[in-house]
Simulated assay, not measured.
Amino acid sequence: MNPLNHVAIIMDGNGRWGLKNKKSRNEGHRAGLNTIENILKETIKQKIKFITLFTFSTENWNRPKKEIKYLFNLLENFLHNKIENLNKKNIKLKIIGFKNFSPELNKLLRKSENLTAQNTKLQINLALNYGSKMELIETFKKLKKLKKKFTEKNVSKNLLTNEIPDPDLLIRTGNTKRLSNFLLWQLAYTEIHFEKKLWPDFNVIDYKKIIKKFKSTKRNFGKI
């Protein structure tokens, strides 16, 4: 049975769910928060130590300004209302991405990370303003500046995920089969599951089925 230490999730389909059920993309984003909370609870039950959630990509800045503002308001409200509870539950929050947000949000993100830095039950990585191509370019620039050789080990040690093990399992909801510039280096040997359901419809039963399938999958890592 395969050990499962790190799950990464592309939470796709919020906007489509909102338009279909509430005639509002924003309502889909709000509904998606409920799914996040349920999946986090099950992740703890499964004793998985790391979960990475693709929250906002470098390409998402091309969305309408009103939608972007709503998304960041949701994030701020979530942190204001939930971070103390996450801390009490021994959950660590880590931001993976390029933090060029408003001074208020940057301060809130730093506060949330610092508050939970020593927690050990579960580490939640929020991929926020994250793009894998930009991450790799910045890593190569850093290696060049440090005059280090371009080796696999040196690249991995200088990524935004340098202290995080590579994902064992990637789940993408929304019936879309692509990686969308997410953890391209880190997903080299990750098992990938593409889920038809939109993110707000994804539930704990779906999650448990995927985990069960992963644990019984033969993983060769290039060997026979």
Rank of each mutant, 00 (worst) to 15 (best):
Ser156Phe: 15
Lys89Gln: 15
Lys94Val: 15
Lys145Ser: 12
Asn181His: 10
Gly174Cys: 05
Phe182Glu: 06
Thr120Gly: 07
Ala127Val: 03
Leu160Asp: 00
Arg178Gly: 01
Thr151His: 02
Leu126Thr: 08
Leu115Thr: 14
Asn87Gln: 00
Phe101Asn: 02
Leu184Lys: 09
Ile83Thr: 10
Thr116Arg: 04
Lys197Asn: 08
Ser132Gln: 08
Asn81Thr: 14
Thr139Cys: 07
Lys149Thr: 13
Glu152Thr: 10
Lys196Arg: 13
Glu84Gly: 13
Asn100Leu: 05
Thr120Trp: 00
Ser132Thr: 08
Ile137Asp: 03
Asn106Glu: 01
Trp185Glu: 07
Leu109Gly: 01
Asn162Glu: 10
Gly97Ala: 03
Gln118Ile: 02
Leu187Tyr: 08
Met134Lys: 15
Pro103Asn: 12
Glu191His: 03
Met134Glu: 13
Asn203Glu: 07
Gly174Lys: 04
Lys99Glu: 08
Glu113Trp: 09
Glu163Gly: 07
Lys99Val: 03
Leu136Phe: 14
Asn125Met: 11
Thr116Gln: 09
Leu169Val: 06
Phe202Pro: 02
Leu128Thr: 01
Leu198Ile: 04
Leu109Tyr: 09
Asn129Phe: 11
Lys142Phe: 09
Leu128Glu: 06
Leu128Cys: 00
Asp201Asn: 11
Tyr207Asp: 05
Ile91Thr: 13
Lys196Pro: 01
Asn100Phe: 13
Asn129Ala: 02
Ile171Leu: 07
Phe150Val: 11
Ser102Trp: 14
Ile96Pro: 00
Thr161Leu: 10
Lys208Asn: 13
Asp166Cys: 09
Ser132His: 00
Trp185Cys: 01
Asp166Pro: 12
Lys121Cys: 11
Asn85Gln: 13
Pro103Ser: 02
Leu170Met: 00
Ile124Val: 11
Ile164His: 05
Ala117Thr: 12
Lys148Trp: 07
Thr190Tyr: 00
Ile164Leu: 05
Phe150Tyr: 14
Ser112Gly: 06
Pro167Cys: 08
Val204Phe: 06
Phe202Gln: 01
Glu138Asp: 11
Lys196Val: 06
Asp168Leu: 00
Thr139Val: 15
Lys148His: 08
Leu128Val: 02
